[in-house]
Design a protein around this nucleic acid. Sequence first.
RNA 1: GUCCCCAUGGUCAAGAGGUUAAGACACCGCCCUUUCACGGCGGUAUCGGGAGUUCGAUUCUCCCUGGGGACGCCA
Length: 484
Amino acid sequence: MIKVRFAPSPTGYLHIGGARTALFNYLFAKRQGGKFVLRIEDTDKERSTKESEQEILDSLKWLGLDWDEGPGKSADDSMYYQTKRLAVYHKHAEKLIAEGKAYKCFCTKEELDAERKKAEAEKRAFKYDSRCSLLTPEQVKAKEEAGMPYTVRLKVPKDGEVIVEDMIRGDVKTANSVLDDMIILRADGMPIYNFVVVVDDADMGITHVIRGEDHLSNTPKQIHMYKALGYQVPKFAHIPLILGRDKSKLSKRHGETAVLNYRKMGYLKEAMVNYLAFLGWSPESGKDIMAMEELIAEFDLARVHKAGAMFDDQKLQWMNGMYIRKKSTDELTDMCVPHLIAAGYITEAEAVSRREYLKKVTAVQQEKLKLINEIAGLSSYFFTEEAPLTDDAKKVWEKNAEERVKTLEVLLKIIEETGTDDKAKVEERVRLDMEAAGIKSKVYMHVIRVAVSGCTQGPGLFDVIELVGKERCIKRIKSLLAGN
RNA sequence: GUCCCCAUGGUCAAGAGGUUAAGACACCGCCCUUUCACGGCGGUAUCGGGAGUUCGAUUCUCCCUGGGGACGCCA
């Protein structure tokens, strides 16, 4: 049984890169009929928070990346929180010490920091010299009895090499001589990532470790860990990093990286998933718009790229527009309403009482939207009494100085007589009467649009007239005529 | 600095020794159209450099260059 996991540390929100890693794990698991596990790596007690954890869970749920095992999936969650498994790690550490595969190190943080600094100044790589592994049992005992704090380090071979067999990168060889004896237990007894990740992955029966390329250089150490513990080494797949505009690892300084904020900005989860899947992977079919089900059906680690991929929100926006167009009017209205409320155009109560009207507005704007939150800006004149002319609209108004008064007079008469509810009828009369008045369509269409909406662009003109309504149309036309 | 990874248009990318080097986004035209958007058609633009291997390299090897990542008692 294939089993993969996503193992975030709850020290912040779920960012784009993490979401993409989770997605690849999810797609691989589903494609292979395996299981997707969520594990919370909270051994950094300084920075871990419950709020971060909740945000990560919410983010994954929003994207539809539900886990088969993990928090909330069984009566006993303790397996999926590392701080709840401390006893397990200690037992493993003790066993390693007893077997002579690990040892207690009494070097202090200060000593090591000083050495690291010195090495840096001398422009050479710092590597712990394993001196505490040379301590005799008596010396260790004496130091312990003296109450000296210690960390526990894993003994790593000094010669030979480790090979990471990576499903994406092939065999990656590392000389053991560049590795040092890594700390597995801190002085306060808390275990270190490189240790717990191995213990947990082994205990959970993780078969494939799919993670960002930034972990590739940790992998040789982890392989030594697996071997020391007597575990089978899983398969690894290191996926390329997501890059910012300057080609460095995507981070806050490149802009918004919190997944949940993309929802706030008006992105659809379908677009997010689709776009993220295409960062570092492409389907053999060559399709570009793919729903989750299709992604699962086609996902293949062998087709994952090696090079990092730049995050480009232009394409994401295009995709978002495509998915917005696929939404039903009801669903889209649900998504637009909060933005209209936030803009102050409607109240919570009106969101319900004026539902039909809101659906009509949404329907006529559907094909224009790239982001949900654009709904307010594009629809302002449907919710305000006045519709002052934009700069572009003023130009149109001025450009048609000859015909504008006549146009509006004809329009006013039509609306006063037929109202605005029957848009087909309004359109028919506008065409007939304008022609009779000798005004060309290029002219009256633009003038009318500017008059009733204040804008030069928007939905179909007769849709706009219908939704603005008789009363406001007349008011806006008269006000323009008066100002002229 | 040391180790590791990577290298096709502006971006995402297809490509597996012989191709007119796909496609998508973006951009520019044209068409459709009352505007915008959608859609359609067309266009601009890519194999980092140098050695090999080969009849033939974008594709294989090496070097260089460039970019990135990792070097914590963070994860």
